[in-house]
Amino acid sequence: MEILKYIGSFFVLLGSIFLFLGALGIYRMPDVYNRLQAGTKSSTLGAMSMLLGIGFLQPDWMVKMIVIIIFIAVSNPLSSHALARGAYRAGLSLFQKEKIDAYEKDYKDMEDKEL
């Protein structure tokens, strides 16, 4: 099937573009939280779209690819959340133009309780 080949190549290309933009975002953003923003979103959609493209190129693998896509959609945000929380607990400060940090107060309360 010729048409499936084109659709598959399109998705693989789209995925690689998003992955490239994610890498560029990690390079350009000022602090760890903004870098996570760029990294998580584009790596999730990039990997999903690339796997979907492989599924179109090899139709036998389509169902497996969809299972892997579901795993990625569930596990990727979890890891970025763990990184963001760990970064905050390790004391990395936020890049801010105005001071907006609702987490600070609750985090201090929690820390007092733990001590």
Partner: peptide, 10 residues
């Protein structure tokens, strides 16, 4: 210009 204005909200 990198248009961001980050912060943490609840």
């Amino acid at each position: 210009s990198l248009p961001i204005n980050p912060g943490i909200v609840e």
